[in-house]
Amino acid sequence: MNRPPHGPYQQPPRQGWPPHPPQPPAKSKAPLVIGILAGVLVLGAAGVAGVLYLGSHGDSGSEKRADRLPAACGNVSEAALAKARTTNPNGRGSSERKLAGGTRTTCAWSQTKGVDGSGLRNTEVIVFQDNENAGDEFERIVAQNMANTQGTPQQKPLDGLGDQATAVLVESKSAFTEMSVVVRADDNVVEVDISGWDAGFFGNDRPDVAELEAAARGLAEEMIAKL
């Protein structure tokens, strides 16, 4: 009887059954790492964008003050001030002085928090009453506005407002913009200055010029009508 040679017992493989099933190749972790990094970058960018947006759209107004302004400042209505987006009276920026040639009154307003929106606006109305040289004063104020070095002043006449009326627009290299309307009616001269900028998506934008002009003209009309 023939016997197999001595040695460890070996069982022949079963047909159709490989002794060790093939192992799947190891998956690379690179896509997962890249995905995590991309997510972090997106969240970081979104966070920065959110901070910039909230910063530019923050309410720049202050709580409503009860400052008393000179009597002549009451010639303009709350509605006209709301159109200029400056309903907060600024007593520190307002004054009244008797001059040799009449009376000079300065009225100032800023933004009210929660009322006048984002961006920045400031309004100043200067009134020269009973000025013997009102014509010369009008020309002096217009020339002073045209000499503004913060930008390139542009002047245009305004019809239907007092005896003489001119608007001067100054746009700076930044978003800061100033609109001045100067009016003479008899021996009174009124200068209305509205300045500021609008909130853009991530920064400041220039205000709409037509909006500024309409607001400044409205204040000038009300002031002149009651002098």
Rank of each mutant, 00 (worst) to 15 (best):
M1Q: 11
N2F: 14
P4S: 13
H6C: 11
G7I: 06
P8D: 13
Y9M: 12
Q11E: 15
R14L: 14
G16Y: 08
P19V: 15
P19Y: 09
H20W: 09
P21H: 09
P22V: 05
Q23P: 05
A26L: 11
V33F: 13
I34H: 03
I34R: 12
I36N: 02
I36E: 02
L41Y: 08
L41C: 13
V42Y: 01
L43R: 07
A46S: 14
V48E: 01
A49K: 03
A49C: 10
V51Q: 12
G55A: 08
H57G: 09
D59W: 02
G61W: 06
G61P: 05
R65E: 11
R65C: 01
A66P: 05
L69N: 00
L69A: 00
P70W: 03
N75R: 15
S77I: 04
A79E: 15
L81A: 02
K83I: 01
K83C: 08
A84W: 01
A84R: 03
R85L: 13
T86D: 02
T86E: 05
N88A: 02
N88V: 02
G91N: 01
G91V: 07
G93V: 06
S94I: 03
S94D: 00
S95L: 06
S95M: 07
E96K: 11
K98R: 14
L99W: 00
A100N: 10
G101L: 13
G102T: 03
T105R: 04
T105D: 04
T106H: 04
T106A: 08
T106M: 06
A108G: 00
T112R: 05
K113S: 13
V115N: 09
S118L: 01
G119P: 06
R121S: 08
N122F: 12
T123L: 15
E124V: 14
V127A: 04
Q129W: 02
D130T: 10
D130Q: 15
N133G: 09
G135A: 15
G135T: 12
D136E: 15
R140G: 06
N148F: 03
T149I: 09
G151F: 06
T152R: 15
T152P: 01
P157Q: 10
G162S: 00
Q164M: 09
A167F: 05
L169K: 00
E171D: 12
A175L: 02
E178V: 13
A185V: 06
A185D: 15
D187F: 01
V189H: 02
V189D: 03
V190F: 04
V190K: 07
V192M: 09
D193G: 04
S195R: 11
G196K: 06
G196I: 03
G196S: 07
A199E: 08
A199W: 08
A199C: 05
F201D: 10
G203D: 15
N204C: 00
P207C: 09
P207H: 07
P207Y: 02
E211G: 10
E211H: 10
A214L: 06
A214D: 15
A214K: 14
R217V: 15
L219E: 05
E221S: 13
E222A: 03
E222C: 08
M223W: 07
A225M: 06
A225E: 11
K226A: 13
L227N: 10
